[in-house]
């Protein structure tokens, strides 16, 4: 076969829908159950073992879901954008499906971030919502996700829809630094970052480890959920192909 490719052989293989379908099916339970186990450990640490905050009392315990979900709302967008770029430049069918299946998971993380933030804001700031930079840019992030999902569904041809929505996803990348730096650039009610990748974090160790455990759990869950969705997405796009037909036949009575 004549092929001038920079990609290793296994990546070509994994890019094939039937191979990826089975690969995702094998990986999915491992990711899902380890996410669940880590979440159980992290939540036990956060809700039971961690001490109350000296300023916020027990209300701060919302942090253990709010902050990991907020990180994931950006991380999921980054993953969607990378897949969208591959979909647009190389027109890889698998990348189109992955980009579109990242969107609902990212939207779920963003929605949970906004709602839990609101439930935290009420007792601490005295308001469910305020139009400040952090909250508004996170709301824009939710609308970007919904825009990608909507555009994907609005166009009859699945592949064209996915590519049009991929373009929107790429344009929306501009919002990511705005969300991240909003607490630095503008005067805001929202507190600054508690955990720093570089340098010391402004949080007690007893609170930090449950937070990081939850962060790991939400990452694993994200990959499990995208694989879970991508399998169905691939079946939908490749419905007429031989491999999809054999899966339909295997599940004759499902």
């Amino acid at each position: 076969m004549m092929s001038r490719s920079y990609l290793p052989h296994w990546m070509h293989l994994l890019g094939s829908p039937p191979v990826f379908y089975r690969f995702a099916g094998t990986l999915r339970p491992w990711l899902f159950w380890s996410a669940l186990l880590l979440a159980a450990i992290g939540l036990y640490g956060g809700l039971v073992l961690a001490p109350a905050d000296y300023q916020q009392g027990d209300a701060y315990r919302i942090i253990f879901i709010h902050v990991p979900c907020a990180w994931m709302s950006l991380f999921a967008y980054g993953c969607m954008a990378v897949a969208a770029l591959v979909a647009m430049v190389w027109r890889v069918k698998l990348a189109e499906v992955i980009a579109m299946e990242c969107a609902p998971v990212g939207a779920a993380f963003t929605l949970v971030t906004l709602i839990t933030g609101s439930l935290w804001g009420k007792p601490m700031w005295g308001a469910w919502w305020t139009w400040d930079a952090r909250l508004t840019s996170e709301l824009v992030l939710l609308f970007l996700y919904l825009g990608v999902i909507g555009l994907d569904h609005a166009i009859e041809d699945r592949r064209r829809g996915a590519r049009a929505a991929s373009l929107l996803a790429l344009v929306g990348v501009v919002n990511l630094p705005i969300v991240h730096y909003s607490v630095v650039w503008w005067n805001t009610l929202h507190q600054g970052s508690t955990v720093q990748l570089l340098g010391p974090s402004k949080i007690a160790p007893g609170m930090l480890w449950p937070l990081l455990t939850m962060a790991l759990a939400t990452h694993l869950y994200f990959f499990a959920s995208v694989l879970n969705r991508t399998r169905v997405g691939l079946l939908a796009v490749e419905g007429g192909k031989e491999w999809a037909r054999s899966i339909v036949a295997e599940n004759a009575h499902a």
Partner: peptide, 10 residues
Amino acid sequence: GGYAQYVWPA
């Protein structure tokens, strides 16, 4: 600690 109505719904 009195914040049940916010923590549990979250």
